[in-house]
Design a protein around this nucleic acid. Structure first.
Lengths: 147, 147
DNA sequence: CAGTATCCAGCTAGATACTG
DNA sequence: CAGTATCTAGCTGGATACTG
């Protein structure tokens, strides 16, 4: 058969894609996922509502509603939230489920693929929070010593 | 003494910063590090020249020259490379060393702080490369089923 | 070699208004 | 509730030219 299984394709990927090369599609993918809202949405999905106490609940990601996300990601515009959710859905990282209640209920949930990226994003978000002071200190030092 | 040690500050950070909050400085930091060139530069520093075979050499990051970086990160403009390197230096993630040879030799090297982020970035780049095919397949499916 | 400086096209993302 | 649609200010980043 000419068709390859997903597993076979994936096995090839490791040697074929290199994000250091400008023309490589993985470079575009890296650019996509290197995005503030992607990071925050993926970090949010999979946490429970009280994210401060839910640092280690990544094992069972909970679906979240549109409005929940928009509340949790303070400051996100409707446009960016919807846009980012669409692109994540298109890329197979999350699923969108619309329940025909009145009014309609829409939930977003991580796929397995999304979950694998979720872990990286959570680490990234945690890194930013944990090292904020260090970075701030370095900036002060740099700024005072550079006329 | 009124001054806090860096360790004390860091201990506080865990509870004080939350990137889900728009006004939190860690949100800005997350936005900074969620950048294509930051990801690629940090992924590059710490690898050896033949990055394809150097997947597990993160233990001893090797300094790299400006020209090396610009060659490795195919397609980066001088402006973006310099700009990104400056911001990484300012944030204390890399150090810049100018050796007064003729012509001048400049090397960039990860700091300990930078190294900790390097590991995350390497994983992110690897994720993009490994799951490229999966994502591509999902996109095709999505596009054909969405008129 | 390793930058700096300048210009500008184009994309991003926020604000705003409207809807099934 | 969960979007869609439109407009636009302004920031990003690429191209280009010049330098210690």
């Amino acid at each position: 058969m000419a068709t390859m299984t997903a597993a076979q394709k994936k096995a090839q990927a490791k040697v074929e894609y290199d994000a250091f090369i400008a023309a490589c599609p993985s470079r575009k993918l890296l650019d996509r996922i290197s995005d503030k809202w992607v990071t925050l949405i993926l970090a949010a999905l999979g946490s429970d509502g009280s994210h401060r106490t839910g640092e280690h609940c990544a094992g069972s990601p909970r679906p979240m509603r549109y409005s929940e996300l928009s509340r949790l990601l303070a400051g996100v515009s409707q446009k960016m939230l919807t846009q980012t959710l669409r692109s994540l859905e298109r890329d197979g990282l999350i699923t969108r489920t619309a329940t025909p209640t009145v009014p309609v209920t829409v939930t977003y949930e991580l796929t397995d693929l999304g979950l694998s990226l979720h872990h990286l994003m959570r680490d990234l978000k945690a890194w930013a929070e944990e090292n904020m002071d260090d970075v701030l200190t370095h900036r002060e030092t740099y700024d005072t010593s550079h006329p």
